[in-house]
Amino acid sequence: MAVADANAPLKKKAPGIRLFGHKVTLSAQIGFLIVFLNLFLMVFAPFLAPYGEGMVPTDLQKWAAPSAAHWFGTDAIGRDILSQLLYGARLSIGLSLLTTIIAFFIGIVTGFAAAISGRWVDVALSRFADLILSMPTLVFSLVIITVVMAREQGFVDATGMSNAFFEGMVIVGVIGFLYAVPVFRLARAVAMNIVALEYVEAARLRGENIWWVITREILPNSIPPLVAEFGLRFCFTFLLIASLSFLGLGIQPPYQDWGSMVNQNAQAIFLGKPQPLFAAGAIALLTIGVNLVVDWLLSVYSRAHGENA
């Protein structure tokens, strides 16, 4: 607090990078760098990858050590790890992003509705949320995915979609639904505070419908905590998809995301080879990067907004 430095000599204004009018700390700069690097690699994977997706190079070598031809070595069937990593980024990050967006859409709409509508809607939605939360997410998603996947062929034949697309949709749907629950709880709590304010009462007195109240009065004022939660939730989704893939239930071959890469290369660790560490490192790096950015966002918004400051 200002107690100690009330009399301290004043520091000159430090120049630095600013975003939304706030100084970006060093750790946040590192976080942004990691996130943008990942996005860049994800978007330009086809141009950057030395080999095609799932392609086994002509100079077939299993478990090749890192070399000029294969920077990160090759895996059990001779695929180039670097190429797989770049293509895997598209699946890992793309699916997580899609899942998080779905979770947020469901969570925010239901959460705000629970806060605004009558008591019974709130009770029904909240108890249902408690029910879902009482089960461990990983186990719960494993069960649902196993059940749905058992009928996979029937669905695929009936709708004409590809197996891989169906599997992707199942993962996105299930995790999106499960992660909508914590988002629901946050959105409800945030909206409860805003609904009590008089400008919302003024809107209701005017006769505005619930959609206006949600989109014009509540949403713009609840952005900061929701944005911070979005970053955090993205990490969780990303890790959950990786875990599912690691357990063999996520992305199926020939496609690989980072989680399944760790899974399929895991045996190499017993041979003293570094292959599984690259995908694991990529997962860790992106998670840390996103968390650094989220930490900064949280610190910015938890500070008093200080009208005059």
Binding site: M1, A2, V3, D5, A6, N7, A8, G306, A309
Partner: peptide, 11 residues
């Protein structure tokens, strides 16, 4: 009391 609020300084 020798106290000033955050952001204010006794100059």
């Amino acid at each position: 009391m020798g106290y000033s609020r955050s952001g204010c300084f006794i100059t």
